[in-house]
Structures are given as C-alpha cells and as structure tokens.
C-alpha cells in the first residue's frame, strides 16, 4: 500500500479527532502499518471547524503533513466547502448524508454518503456518529482491516461504551458494504 493521505473534517464535538486517532491506531498498532497523525491545532472549540490529518503507509513516513489527501471523511458543510478542493484526483470522498450537501462535486471524485447521525440516533446515542463514519470508511477503503479497526475502537472509547461503539461501527461497515455491492466499479483506495 502506497502512502495514503486522509483528512477527516467536521465541527468540534463530533469526535473528528477521535475517529482519526482510532484509524491511525488501528493501522499502526493492529495492522502493522505506519501511521502519522497531525491535528489541526488552533483555537478549535465545540461547534467550529476542525480536522484530523492522517497518513497511513506500508513504508516509514518521512514528510509528516498531508499534501493532497486521497481519502476524505467529512461531517459538516463547512468542512466540505473548505477541504474538498484539496482532494487528490480520483480521490474517495465519504460524507454524512444529512449534514453535507455535495454541490459542484468534481466528476473524478468517488463519492459515498451515509446518514450516520440518524443511524447513531437509532442506536440511542447521537455521539457515536463518528464511529459509524469510521465503520463506513473501513468498508469503503483499504486503509485498515475490520478486525484492526474494531480492536482500536475497543481500546479507544470510554469503558462501558464498547458494545454501543461496536454496534455503531458494524452499522457503518454494513452500510458501506451494501453501497459497494451497488457500485463495485468505484472501489477502492
């Protein structure tokens, strides 16, 4: 697997940083790959734009910043407007269906969306929307394996919430697999 650059964007409080962290932890601890995560570090607070930048590769990572992300996971309209111009040609864009309207999308972009907030609400906690998105991203990319992602979720979420988070992960993962069956030609990072 060559160098993959991933940007996860949304607003503060959605668990953007945590989902990036879990993805990186899955890759570097449970999948024997290399991962480097950089947080967009600024005066981000609940409700304002924030992002996590992650590189996952089979080779040691030298340059630590992302240049042209080939995978984007976006959970807010602001993040969509701000970040999609950076997406590499042919890149994969994963969005939260109800929070992001994908207007003027470039033709080369491989786009998938999921109503992650609704799914999270059906599970009883809107908070786990980031883990639904993580399951979705795991199904639609080759970044990390399902087991690695699940292991990383287990050790990264608050004690006592593992089952809820597993359920969220599985919902997102299954939703992703169903989409892939419909459009197998769009596969994969």
């Amino acid at each position: 697997m060559p160098r993959n650059e991933i940007k996860i964007g949304g607003f503060g409080g959605q668990g953007v940083i945590l989902s990036g962290y879990i993805l990186g932890r899955a890759a570097s601890i449970y999948d024997s790959k290399y991962a480097t995560m950089i947080q967009a570090f600024g005066p981000e607070a609940r409700g304002s734009a924030c992002s996590a930048q992650l590189i996952i590769s089979d080779e040691p990572i030298s340059y630590p910043y992302i240049v042209a992300p080939n995978v984007m996971v976006l959970m807010s309209q602001e993040a969509y407007s701000k970040f999609t111009p950076e997406l590499a040609p042919g890149g994969i864009l994963l969005t939260e269906e109800d929070l992001v309207v994908t207007h003027n999308l470039r033709a080369d972009v491989r786009h998938f969306s999921i109503p992650a907030t609704r799914i999270a609400e059906e599970l009883g906690k809107r908070l786990v929307l980031n883990i639904v998105m993580l399951g979705f991203a795991t199904a639609l990319t080759n970044l990390v394996g399902r087991d690695a992602a699940r292991n990383a979720v287990k050790v990264s979420v608050p004690k006592g919430t593992e089952e809820l988070n597993f359920a969220a992960f599985e919902k997102g993962y299954e939703y992703g697999l169903q989409l892939l069956k419909k459009e197998p030609e769009k596969i994969l990072a």
Binding site: I29, Y34, I38
Partner: peptide, 10 residues
C-alpha cells in the same frame, strides 16, 4: 518542536 511534540505515531 511543535510538529514532533503534537505528532501521533506508534
């Protein structure tokens, strides 16, 4: 430096 300090890796 800030980059190494805030960078997350294995």
């Amino acid at each position: 430096d800030e980059c190494v300090g805030h960078m997350i890796e294995r």
